[in-house]
Amino acid sequence: MLRFLLRRVTLIIPTFVGVTFLSFMLIHLVPGDPIEVRVGEHGIAPERLAQLRHEFGLDQPLWQQFLTYEVQLAHGDLGVSVVTRDTVWNEFTTLFPATVELAVCAIIFAMVVGLPLGVIAAVRRGSAFDYGLMGLSVTGASMPIFWWGLMVILVFSVSLGWTPVSGRISDIYFVEPWSGFMLVDCWFADEAGACASAWGHLILPMIVLGTIPLATIARMTRSSMLEVLNEDYIRTARAKGLSVPRVVVVHALRNALIPVVTVIGLSVSSLLGGAILTETIFSWPGVGHWLVESIQRRDYPVLQGGTLLVAVLVILVNLGVDVTYSFLNPRIRR
């Protein structure tokens, strides 16, 4: 297992180079540079423009800029935002917990709801419940998020007034940003109502972001369970005189989870890249929002560094999925 992990971690390095190369080249293909974008329509003196470009190293040939960037990375330096002059690492670590908090809650929500629904649909296949659920899951998986998010806000925040519209917590609370995870910080903050407020702010984006994974997980679980329930070893389990829940959960679900875990892992890694639409609709201060802005401002270091960090996380999550996989499936354990 250790050797397996080592090999996988070593594979990260070429992936790094590939990711930085791609993000570097793509953003440089976009016309304009950070200086021009900041200067805007009014323009400044050409001498000043050249001076600023020189200051940021933008006057050098592209390959040299890339090499400089790679060397800088190798020293563990992600660079400084052209816009805010703050380090990319600082900005990322401030915003990332919000994204993680939302993504993790969304995926837990999707699993807690989706897995049992899929299992029940498979066990009662052909029933009204099964058809109803599968119809809903197609709807869920094909729902445009911007529309769904706005509808949820309209109903629960505007009409019913149950939850706040946006942000992470009410202004009336001040919570020491100890871990960056609002739910954790509120737990330790010892301020009455802070936790409730944090949950209130989280619940709608969580549901909106979790809808597509939820629908996918429910469908995958159902089809995987249907396949497994026909296996010979399920008949063996029943021949032991085990109860139906035990046969379904212990014998069938464990096997059926193997493909489902892959789907969950893929969802997690795509959510970590920042749920751009959801974060925008709910003004959630996460990395998705930050990356989109960095494109508009041609903030090269932020875009490149942010992309790289997200890529690392995606790789780590996939590694985690593979490890989980080998625990679920003894046949691929080495």
């Binding site: 070893y233 096997n255 499936n329």
Partner: peptide, 8 residues
């Protein structure tokens, strides 16, 4: 071969 649960 298929009558035993592969996971346990």
């Amino acid at each position: 071969m298929s009558s035993l649960n592969p996971c346990y």
